[in-house]
Design a protein around this nucleic acid. Structure first.
Lengths: 359, 359
DNA sequence: TTGAAAGCGCTAACAG
DNA sequence: CTGTTAGCGCTTTCAA
């Protein structure tokens, strides 16, 4: 039917089927721009015209092409976010909150996972920048040189950039980007202090199985430093990969089998609650008294920790708050064009039974 | 420098700062189209020219504008996916696998959450369609009329559409879309049969707190039907919202307090493992013998279930497989332009201690 | 192997 | 309140 005439000097391209502004305009007997206005600033269109346009849109099932709109306007409605893992319940809650916060603002969340891999982070960021995002949400403050360059370029071009789940480090110059989170070093120190204050002199720390989880690493390092400063002995372990509960069990077994008579560990801290719960369950299985013979302390405040007995002492990080604050900060920066502000969010040490003071 | 001449009749618009093909072309002393070819079909560009272009790109830090490219080419590199919740570990693994499968294929995953709300699903889908996605991934087979219309329109326009985490229902005509998942009705029946085979005649089922979780509802309904068919008595509960472990505990307490002398429930099945684990922990706390006095059966194969003692019997759904199969099906459909094929994926009933046969 | 021209669907700028 | 005109940055078709 719509065959090009045989002598046509050129084959004109035609769109891929979906109805366009043009079609709506034709049906409503107005021009495209009026339809565009109806969609973006309904107030500027006469009610009667608006009704016709509305009917036309419904009739042909028109859905605006966002790519075209954003290209033409030069401003995009995409917030790009990079997180290490979607599987990790810790980030899930933050993202859920961020996503809720962006809901009904017209902004979409474009989310990708780096799998704790800086090379991948760089590639992902590059791909995301291709979407001309209105804002950038990164996780943590450690990035490759190129990643940092891309972030800086974006920020210079006026795109708000924020780093979540981290805070300014003590021996660091003023951060280049707004951070929304907390200091993992402080958490690590607090974890050590909590155990030291209960009189423990022989501590252990079980690291995350992912060395590239910089924030977890930082908590462990700070824990170690604080323990050393207090003159306590410290055994360091790294959990195995695989099921974190099993890894926690194994780490407890390693810990026990590597005990020397003089330095019997009486308190162990873990990179996360799943590891700690595994250790807790294994201790119960082996008949070890928790906290009597061994105190246990986790991180993350995962729901299961509250359920076991003894219940698991842990750090409760501001999971959801980070997402909410990020959404708020971004929207503020995007609408008022102001500078994005970082925030330090509070965390809490939940002193439950697994590290209760020995009476 | 580039001030508009004072008498210029119109203020020309200029882009928003980021370097474009044009800039690269200028630096490399070629035209834009050659740069475009270098990016999309490097083989068609002379090596010498390619080198110049490559240098230019690096020099000015050019990142292609995807929106412009997709608009011009009419084909997008976005896969849009709608899931009920990101917080739910069950979907997290599927999405992670889908995302891995799409990695390095040039396709991006645009992900949004419906929060188990059909109205929201419709709104989200509409927003996603605005991105002219190359493919659509929906969750489940129940959608609003309008959502279905949009999905059908997309499919008609040649966009592969698949529904994950579900399968063809027995009394349903040929599904309009490819489904990748399994039958929740079958799972529900299998759960009931498992308990019936162990001689239980008084069953209970604890529903998900989310009535709009159609798949969970379907498992429960099928469980109930199977129990009724076998002449067993059945107590139905719906778990409370909030911490699922707590909800599971409460449901056990309700169950026990609503016991009549004649029909003492000896086996309870749950909509998910967290609920079941809560009940398991509560049973232990109350000194109820599991499985001696009460058998417990969950769904989902969450890691914690294996760790408790008695370990939790459960259904292990093909979480990751669904994501992998979806990625594979989409890529096949996108590259070979063939029809998307649905798949039924196998699940397993893990018969662990909480429902061990009474000897 | 490279270039010229036209157009993807929409919106900014400026009239009327 | 509505229309005209000229792009957004890229890719398509055809020609050289």
């Amino acid at each position: 039917m719509t065959q090009p005439p045989p002598n046509s000097p050129r084959q004109p391209r035609r769109g891929h089927g979906r109805p366009t502004l043009h079609d709506v305009a034709g049906l409503a007997a107005v021009t495209r721009i009026t339809v565009s206005r109806y969609l973006n600033a309904p107030g500027q269109v006469a009610p009667e015209t608006a009704a016709r346009i509305c009917a036309a849109i419904a009739a042909i099932g028109y859905v605006p092409n966002l790519q075209a709109g954003q290209l033409a306007s030069g401003r995009s409605k995409v917030v790009a976010a990079l997180i290490p893992s979607i599987n990790n319940s810790i980030f899930a809650e933050t993202i859920q909150a961020l996503s809720e916060g962006l809901n009904n603002t017209g902004y979409e969340l474009l989310l990708t996972c780096t799998a704790y891999d800086m090379t991948r982070e760089e590639a992902q960021l590059r791909a995301l920048i291709g979407w001309a995002p209105a804002a950038l949400v990164m996780t943590g403050r450690q990035h490759s040189q190129t990643t940092l360059r891309l972030m800086l370029a974006a920020q210079l071009a006026g795109t708000p950039v924020i780093e979540i789940w981290d805070d300014r480090h003590a021996d660091e110059a003023e951060p280049a980007f707004a951070r929304i989170g907390f200091s993992h070093a402080e958490v690590g120190r607090a974890m050590a202090r909590h155990l030291l204050q209960q009189g423990h002199r022989h501590l252990a720390y079980v690291h995350s199985p992912i060395p590239a989880d910089f924030r977890a690493q930082e908590r462990g390092d700070a824990f170690a430093a604080e323990a050393a400063a207090a003159g306590a002995t410290l055994s360091l372990f790294r959990a195995g990969t695989g099921d974190p509960f099993d890894a926690g069990r194994e780490s407890l077994n390693h810990l026990l089998s590597s005990q020397s008579a003089v330095t019997t560990v009486t308190a162990a801290a873990f990179s996360n609650d799943n590891l700690a719960c595994g250790a807790l369950l294994e201790a119960k299985r082996r008949g070890i008294d928790v906290p009597g013979a061994l105190s246990l302390l986790g991180f993350g405040d995962f729901p299961i920790g509250r359920q076991l007995s003894p219940s698991l002492s842990t750090i409760s990080p501001p999971r959801g708050e980070i997402g909410r604050a990020a959404a708020q900060a971004l929207l503020a920066a995007l609408t008022t064009n102001s500078v994005t502000q970082g925030v330090s969010l509070p965390w809490v040490l939940l002193e439950r039974d697994s590290s209760a003071r020995k009476i």
